[in-house]
Simulated assay, not measured.
Amino acid sequence: MVDWIGMDPYLFAKPGGYGFGDFSYLVNHTTNPARWPGFYSWVTKEHGNKPLMVAEWGVYEHTADPAQKAWIFSTVAQQIGRFPAIRALVYFDSPNAPKGDTRPDSSQPALREFKKLAESQTFDVTL
């Protein structure tokens, strides 16, 4: 029995490089929609009755421009409403992840945007 479907995507904060993009890119990236619609599109079509968890996600720091990681964090609250099947987000926080630093506080701009995200109405949950 499957109760939830999870995914663990990552982004790189270096513009123009592999894996750079916004929240939408994180959860639904595709290079060819005819061959692969993107994970979110696929899972909601094939398993639309299941909640989706972004069970592990992160953004690798681009030390030459810390504002890029902050920008990526700013897109989450702006775009998450486009993805109503996402019911949980779990951030992976490590200074030594395999491809770099994913900590939300790796720079002051990133920390500022991550705090805004955490405090947004999107996550105002009543139990």
Rank of each mutant, 00 (worst) to 15 (best):
W4F: 14
W4S: 10
W4L: 12
I5C: 09
M7N: 10
Y10M: 05
F12D: 05
F12W: 11
A13Q: 13
P15G: 10
G16W: 11
G16H: 12
Y18K: 11
G19W: 08
F20V: 00
F20P: 11
S24G: 15
L26D: 08
V27H: 13
P33K: 00
P33S: 03
A34I: 00
W36P: 01
P37L: 00
P37W: 00
G38H: 01
G38K: 01
V43F: 00
T44E: 00
T44Q: 01
K45F: 04
K45W: 06
H47C: 13
H47P: 01
P51T: 09
P51Q: 15
L52C: 06
L52V: 14
M53D: 13
M53I: 04
M53H: 14
V54P: 10
A55K: 12
A55C: 06
E56H: 11
W57G: 01
V59A: 06
E61V: 01
E61T: 04
H62Q: 13
H62N: 15
T63Q: 04
T63M: 01
T63I: 02
A64K: 14
A67C: 10
A67I: 06
Q68Y: 06
Q68M: 09
K69Y: 11
W71R: 14
I72Q: 15
S74T: 09
S74Y: 12
V76F: 15
V76C: 12
Q79A: 06
Q79V: 05
G81K: 03
R82F: 06
F83C: 01
A88D: 13
V90R: 13
Y91S: 10
D93W: 08
D93V: 03
S94Y: 07
K99F: 10
G100Y: 09
T102E: 07
T102K: 08
R103H: 06
P104G: 14
S106M: 03
S106K: 09
S107H: 14
S107P: 11
P109M: 04
A110W: 07
L111I: 03
R112P: 01
E113F: 06
K115W: 08
K116I: 00
K116P: 04
L117H: 14
A118H: 08
E119V: 07
E119G: 14
S120F: 15
Q121I: 00
Q121Y: 02
Q121V: 05
V125K: 12
T126F: 09
T126P: 02
L127N: 14
